[in-house]
Design a protein around this nucleic acid. Structure first.
Length: 596
RNA sequence: GAGGGUGUAGCGAAGUUGGUUAUCGCGACGGCCUGUCACGCCGUAGAUCGCGGGUUCGAGUCCCGUCACUCUCGCCA
């Protein structure tokens, strides 16, 4: 009965060195490779820590030889043997354990496996759905193992840093009240209360503010968040945030803390030196200079306003747009050795712009001696010098322009051209370029609904100088809001919060929530705020996105152990799935299927 | 909700203006091999070309529809 189930490892597959020469060891792991040379077998045995070469020599017993010959890829085995240094000529300098090998005396097959649905090796080009269906196999790959380690190291480093700075890690509930903000909620039906639902949190926003009212002073949480929206490469239904809130702080306290955190974490986890502070851009600067509120600063390619020049040109389309208060912006495409600015290429840039609402992309080529040619250049006769100087252009460059009545679409379209150019011309430098975007507008106008809504969320503090004009001119109000941007991705978002009941109610009213509705939805927050809330603020960096960028990946799926695909399905466990009628009955639910 | 891309053996791909038996690499299976490390060599099996319909003497290839995955817009405070 007490017979040993298996020979338990005495060390791992990444640990043995010359110093272990002659020692008797047991290794547990998976068959990574099995090279059979007739009388000699080489088995690469793999575990999380590395790969060690196991040798079955020609003097092996018949039994051992037969077991070695029967091994297939990914069999889980235990090897008992003796470490020996390899002959000089056989040393593999590519392997961490390449100086030694283990001469097997006994091999136990702990478990076998059938032919694999795909090969486990790094950088696999296997379709993602298949990888997700057999995620347990995919996770064995070196890439997934490294990324899970990176994610672990990242989170551990964050925990240690914040803990050392007096933060408490506090959990908040994941079954909460549905509150009408932002994204669609995931709902959980209540068994006890027919017709009532919990919601999964889109973020712990209200709870962390209430923790501040509760005197917790500094809080953080590695928090799972849920938003029922369509997926993308950099977002899915459930994701993980470092949620963080502090009492008695102003904006710069939060920004400084985060800079210190990321400088520390990047050094500790990746041995990468970040600058001690990050560049700050106002929302208006970011939009005007880069056309987006999440600019990728790994390359330049700044946008210029050329509305005044366009107005003086003979290009009636542009003149009309300017005359109607529209916007015209331009970008310089620098001369390239690798990319020919052909009509075909310009069309591809135009297509990129049109996705964001541009009607077209006007272009001109810069020639020698302040000349412009091609495209719309004939309309800019006499303005060549000014245009070229404005754009800082020179011979061989190209000037690309977007005109649009809507400022945001004008910016976004040209931003798409900017990022396409950077990619195609190979202008993207390696590295990590952080920047802060500050001074966001607090409200934006909902065209469909005909009312103002919070651009970020309704709990952010308006900047002081706008307190008197909140109601009269919501569109001009700037908030104490900040986003952290890394390599063109929004990786954190935060604000100084409102801690005054009356001010909070004013914001609700502007956002179309009358006092009664606000009380109904957010009464618990307003109630808490009656009891001497401290001034407070916080931020929430996205863990998945951060690790994705650190791992130089473009999909957060690569840094999540069990992600869902873009159709919101998990191919491994086949969720979502139907449930029993009994379960529905208990929850008082009747399914109404959509008509086809 | 909208647009683009992809779908050929277990995996990754090729497949010409529509033309005989759909090709290659990896993997699987069998055999050989004493120093490999992506071992090598020989052989074998494995494909309703996503699915349905149409055009045609003939469709992997052309057309229509549909499904799945994927990228993007919308959406995501």
């Amino acid at each position: 009965m007490s017979e040993e189930l298996f020979s338990q490892r005495t060390t791992t597959c990444g640990a043995l060195t010359r110093a272990d020469d002659g020692s008797r060891v047991v290794l547990n792991g998976w068959v990574h490779r099995n090279r059979n040379h007739g009388a000699v077998h080489f088995i690469n045995l793999r575990d999380r820590y590395g790969i060690t070469q196991v040798v079955v020599d020609d003097d092996a017993s018949k039994d051992l030889e037969e077991i070695a010959a029967s091994l297939r890829l990914e069999f889980c085995i235990a090897v008992t043997g003796t470490v020996r240094c390899r002959p000089d000529a056989m040393i593999n300098s590519e392997m961490a354990t390449g100086e030694i090998e283990v001469k097997a005396e006994r091999i136990e097959i702990l478990s076998s496996c059938p032919a694999l649905p795909f090969q486990i090796d790094d950088g696999t080009k296997t379709k993602e759905d298949l990888r997700l269906k057999y995620r347990y196999l995919d996770l064995r790959s070196q890439g997934m193992q490294q990324r899970m380690k990176l994610r672990h190291d990242f989170i551990l480093s964050i925990r240690n840093y914040l803990s050392a700075r007096d933060f408490y890690e506090i959990e908040t509930p994941t079954l909460i009240k549905s509150t009408p903000e932002g994204a669609r909620d995931f709902l959980v039906p209540s068994r006890h209360y027919p017709g009532k639902f919990y919601a999964l949190p889109q973020s712990p926003q209200l709870f962390k503010q209430i923790l501040m009212v509760g005197g917790m002073d500094k809080y953080f949480q590695i928090a799972r968040c849920y938003r029922d929206e369509d997926a993308r490469g950099d977002r899915q239904l459930e994701f993980t945030q470092l949620d963080l809130e502090m009492s008695f702080v102003k904006r710069d306290d939060v920004l400084t803390l985060m800079e210190g955190l990321f400088v520390h974490v990047f050094k500790e986890v990746m041995d990468h030196d970040l600058p001690p502070t990050f560049r700050r851009l106002t929302y208006a600067e970011a939009m005007n200079t880069y056309g987006t509120d999440k600019p990728d600063l790994r390359y330049d390619l700044e946008l210029e306003d050329v509305a005044d020049l366009a107005a003086r040109s003979t290009f009636s389309t542009f003149k009309e747009i300017v005359g109607n208060g529209g916007f015209i912006k331009a970008i310089r495409a620098p001369k390239s050795e690798t990319v020919d600015f052909s009509r075909k290429y310009i069309t591809s840039l135009e297509d990129a712009a049109k996705v964001y609402g541009a009607h077209g992309l006007a272009w001109m080529k810069v020639g020698e001696h302040n000349t412009l040619a091609g495209g719309v250049s004939k309309f800019f006769e006499g303005l060549e010098g000014e245009m070229i100087e404005r754009m800082g252009a020179s011979d061989g460059d190209m000037i690309l322009m977007v005109a649009h009545a809507d400022w945001k679409r004008c910016c976004a379209s040209l931003s798409a051209v900017r990022s396409t150019l950077a990619r195609d011309l190979g202008l993207i430098k390696k590295g990590f370029e952080f920047c802060w975007i500050i001074d966001f507008p607090l409200f934006e106008y909902n065209e469909e609904g005909g009312f103002w809504q919070a651009a970020h969320h309704m709990f952010s503090m308006p900047q002081q100088e706008f307190l008197d004009t909140l109601e009269s001119d919501p569109g001009s109000v700037l908030g104490d809001l900040y986003d952290l941007v890394l390599n063109g991705y929004e990786v954190a978002s935060g604000s100084i919060r409102i801690h005054d009941v009356e001010l909070q109610k004013r914001i609700f009213r502007i956002c179309n929530f009358d006092d009664e509705t606000a009380e109904q939805r957010f009464g618990f927050l307003l109630n808490a705020f009656r009891y001497s809330p401290p001034p407070h603020g916080g931020i929430a960096p996205g863990i998945d996105r951060m690790v994705m960028i650190m791992a130089e990946e473009t999909s957060i799926h690569e840094v999540i152990a069990f992600p869902k695909n873009t159709a919101a399905v998990s191919p491994m466990d086949d969720s979502p799935s139907e449930v029993d009628q009994k379960q529905l009955d208990e929850l008082h639910l009747v399914i109404k299927y959509p008509e086809k």
